[in-house]
Design a binder for these strands. Structure first.
Length: 345
DNA sequence: CGCATTTGACCTGCGC
DNA sequence: GCGCAGGTCAAATGCG
């Protein structure tokens, strides 16, 4: 219960949120302005449709000729950073509003901008170490000497430096670079959305100031250190915030079998459906597959394609029109259908 | 029996 | 230095 009483206030804050390097969340209010917050991840928040249909054609999209190009960059951290024009971590000249990135930002400042995020959802990702990545803290008293069990490519790294079997002298484990993160806001009844991958829950924590707990999942595929956090927005209980960290090193088990995708595709359709069959703002399996994001569930609604990262947000050519990106744009979909999956063997 | 989830303890970073 | 909160571990438990 205790429905976080999101109060109408925030619900009205539709629009796209674009979060990126260096703990800054920029809320694209469609007017060319961004609000900053902190966090180190790329986020795309899909909000409610307001007047679906806008209808911006692909060729009108400035820096990105297609959604595919955008996604490619999105999937590739390097490319992403390039698009952001920020080495995955550094200032970006955005139009900061009143309360610009207050000081170090870590901390509670986030809430404000990230309207839908849980109070501290972003705090945790703060300062580098964030990637958690096993962080080789194995030296817990009881679990101490783990025979270096799984070396799924994540726990090692600074291993020698900080682990030190049972204790301390961990020499200043230098902060390792974070893995790319992407968070999505989705309207869903269920917390854990099926996304075609297999996850194992390894923890759950209560989030301060939020009645909803945050769950931690890890991809069960060996050597794939992708993790994701799932939490429900305290402001809008109907919104689930899923944050992915890292990139899968394998294909989605579901996509290989085509099981998940077909659930959202009209029978008989194997490719992309013609535009008139795609309702505005509907998730497209292939798109989600490309993004390696959760497949949509019937009660989810994707409203717009996230705004392509731009070098100068303040003068974003698409200012005020971002909400018009929809999957109904056949040009985009078609482009997607001909593109190839990254890492496709 | 094997795997996934639950859950309390522990570790770490950060703010005060 | 202390306390808080986020994140992770791993034993216990549940389920197919």
């Amino acid at each position: 219960m205790s429905s976080g009483g999101g109060g109408g206030g925030d619900q009205g804050r539709h629009g796209l949120y674009h979060q990126h390097g260096h703990g800054q969340l920029t809320r694209y209010d469609g007017a060319g302005g961004y609000e900053l917050s902190n966090d180190d991840m790329e986020s795309f928040f899909f909000s409610q449709p307001e007047g679906v249909g806008g209808g911006v054609r692909a060729d009108e999209i400035a820096p990105y000729s297609s959604i595919t190009s955008y996604l490619q960059g999105f999937l590739d951290p390097t490319g992403l950073a390039r698009h952001l024009d920020v080495p995955a971590k550094h200032e970006l000249s955005v139009d900061v509003r009143s309360h610009d990135q207050d000081s170090q930002g870590t901390g509670s400042a986030a809430g404000e901008s990230a309207a839908l995020l849980t109070p501290n959802s972003s705090v945790s990702f703060s300062s580098g170490g964030g990637d958690g990545e096993g962080k080789s803290r194995r030296s817990k008293k009881g679990r101490a000497q783990e025979p270096d069990d799984q070396e799924d490519g994540k726990d090692h790294e600074d291993g020698e430096s900080s682990k030190t079997a049972n204790n301390k002298p961990k020499k200043k484990a230098e902060k390792r670079p974070r893995l790319p993160r992407v968070s999505f806001l989705t309207k869903s009844e269920v917390d854990h959305l099926e996304d075609g991958y297999r996850w194992r829950k390894y923890g759950q924590k209560a989030v301060k100031n939020s009645p909803y707990p945050r769950s931690y999942y890890r991809c069960t595929t060996p050597k794939c250190g992708v993790k994701k956090r799932v939490e429900r927005s305290y402001q809008d209980p109907s919104t689930v915030i899923t944050t992915y960290e890292g990139q899968h090193t394998h294909h989605s088990p579901a996509s290989l079998r085509g099981s998940a995708a077909h659930l959202f595709m009209p029978p008989g359709l194997h490719g992309l459906p013609p535009p008139h069959l795609i309702p505005p703002g509907v998730f497209h399996p292939e798109l989600m597959s490309m993004m390696r994001m959760p497949y949509p569930s019937p009660n989810m609604h994707l409203l717009s394609v996230p705004p392509p990262p731009h070098h100068h947000p303040t003068s974003h050519p698409m200012a005020g029109t971002l909400q018009q990106y929809h999957f109904t744009d056949y040009a985009l979909l078609q482009d997607l259908s001909t593109s190839t999956m990254p890492n496709n063997p």
